[in-house]
Design a protein around this nucleic acid. Structure first.
Lengths: 137, 137
DNA sequence: CTAATCTCTCTAGCAGCTATAGGTTCAAGA
DNA sequence: TCTTGAACCTATAGCTGCTAGAGAGATTAG
């Protein structure tokens, strides 16, 4: 029997976030005490750890909902789980590529600035004039 | 004399977004026609391009507000502009580093999955059991 | 039994837009 | 000049994934 605070301490998920996950349908509404407080058991602890873990990996609530549903059916083929993870990996890679372009552009802008006033600052000029940029961003 | 639609087409910033920027104080409230429609001039076009450009580079509204203010004062020293850009570069780099960790972890998880059902799927197991992870993420 | 600590629900706020509804204005053609 | 259709107006709500706060009730240790 865990209170919501116990669950929070054990998983590192904050209390309002646990309630939010319940609302979003990631975890089932647990039993309540006579005084209306939530009481959890072992399986809910594990499920919340699962969710926490998936969030740490950057998966969306939507994707996690699907994974949680899948994990409740061990006999199903795991191709869906694979697809979710692989798609996510793809989007992580895409984001890295995008950020690297930005990094490159920002490096260039920052390193070019030798001016002393805003009037001849490369940072400001680069932002004012797209022609000073190297590529798309 | 540009209408808000003209401005939108010329800068690639959507109409509601232009109004939003006005509300956020990134661009000044322009003159209006007798019928209350916004009419812009050249300087506002340039300013919006500047903003668009800065947004493309991932700068926050807050940072852009500072840069816009600076660009209105060409005689000021440009150290603030430099600082804003450099700080942003730092946060872009931090995000890249974080995403690379995720990429690594996800690659490992996805590539290990040789099972056929959810019951023995490495994706699901890795999420259920933090012990299967390599490091922090 | 009391006091301290939890917990409850509800609402609002963050960033940076985007979408919709319901109404008004503009500009070009007949 | 009139009409029509596109563009524009404001105001409000929604998106993601939480987080913070108010004000009230529950639990538990001493």
């Amino acid at each position: 029997m865990y209170s919501i605070g116990d669950l929070s301490r054990k998983t590192g998920v904050k209390i309002p976030t646990i309630r939010y996950y319940e609302q979003m349908g990631l975890i089932a509404a647990p039993d309540r005490t006579q005084g209306n407080q939530r009481r959890y058991e072992r399986p809910e602890l594990e499920r919340l750890s699962f969710i926490r873990h998936a969030r740490d990996l950057g998966l969306s609530i939507e994707a996690i909902r699907d994974l949680v549903d899948l994990s409740q059916h061990p006999e199903k083929p795991c191709s869906d789980a694979d697809r979710i993870a692989t798609e996510h990996l793809g989007s992580v890679r895409a984001k890295i590529a995008q950020l690297k372009k930005l990094e490159h552009e920002l490096e260039r802008i920052v390193s070019h600035c030798a001016g002393h006033t805003v009037g001849d600052c490369y940072v400001i000029r680069a932002l004012s004039d797209h022609g000073l940029c190297e590529g798309e961003h």
